[in-house]
């Protein structure tokens, strides 16, 4: 894929408009931090431009972006020495007027393997089969994670008095 500077800018903007929120949500569910999530989206796009992969269709391109942003976010999380500090700081981040931080706080208490599945299924409306492809797990494993994650989310949400 050899594009001029203008074409490249248009292409990146198109990617951001189409998949920006998807990548942002995925990263946010992992790192729990809006600024870090934005950084992960940016790193993912840098990788995208640098490697210039060829995709047979948009579905593959979308899967690639989700996988890379998830991996980047997990790597960042591993690098953090103090997760508690991250969790305490993330509450201070202002992301929007109508944002409900209660459910997000509860989400961040779940293990990462449940968070990604819940976000992809309920927020991005992926099918179970699509999630299995992106996360490279079996459909039955995804169904199990979805069921357990939903149960944990619901229980902890109620425990917090929401």
């Amino acid at each position: 894929m050899s594009l001029s500077r203008v074409q490249q800018e248009e292409h990146i903007r198109h990617i951001l408009d189409t998949y920006g929120d998807l990548m942002y949500h995925m990263s946010l569910s992992i790192v729990g931090n809006a600024s870090d999530a934005e950084d992960m989206v940016q790193d993912t796009l840098v990788t995208y431009v640098s490697e210039a992969p060829d995709f047979p269709d948009e579905a593959h391109e979308k899967q690639w972006l989700v996988k890379v942003v998830r991996n980047n976010s997990l790597m960042l999380l591993r690098k953090q020495k103090n997760r508690e500090r991250i969790l305490s700081e993330q509450a201070k981040v202002s992301v929007g007027k109508d944002a409900d931080y209660g459910i997000m706080d509860v989400l961040r208490t779940l293990p990462e393997k449940y968070r990604s599945v819940l976000v992809l299924f309920y927020v991005e409306e992926y099918s179970v089969e699509e999630i299995a492809k992106v996360l490279r797990h079996s459909v039955s494993a995804i169904k199990m994670r979805l069921q357990r994650g939903r149960k944990m989310l619901s229980e902890r949400y109620k425990e917090n008095g929401q």
Partner: peptide, 28 residues
Amino acid sequence: KAEEQLKQSMQDMHLSVEAKNRILSNVL
């Protein structure tokens, strides 16, 4: 339900136009 609440909360969180422009310029 908690999952409906999650969906609604997540949809309220999105990359702002400023954030997108910042990311775009940084990537370029």
